[in-house]
């Protein structure tokens, strides 16, 4: 069982989150998924942009301004 804890990216700026996600997604194997915590602003400005690039992006609110985001290739 994969017990990797989702990273907390809530402190990253939208630009840096975009860069980080592009790096991580590039390393992701086909069918693999990426999970991390993001703020509402990050979800709206950055994470959702990956939908148009062919990624399956879902998010669930986990705290006041924290969302567990799942991205799949």
């Amino acid at each position: 069982m994969d017990t990797t804890k989702p990273s907390d990216f809530t402190d990253l700026t939208c630009t840096n989150l975009m860069i980080k996600l592009k790096i991580l997604l590039k390393k992701l194997a086909a069918g693999g998924e990426l999970q991390f915590f993001a703020t509402r602003e990050q979800v709206d400005n950055t994470c959702s942009q990956f939908i148009s690039q062919g990624y399956d992006v879902k998010w669930d609110q986990s705290a006041d301004n924290s969302y567990l985001v799942t991205m799949k290739k």
Partner: peptide, 11 residues
């Protein structure tokens, strides 16, 4: 730190 080379490739 960000890996600068990965940063360039990814962007």
């Amino acid at each position: 730190v960000f890996n600068v080379q990965e940063m360039v490739e990814a962007t």
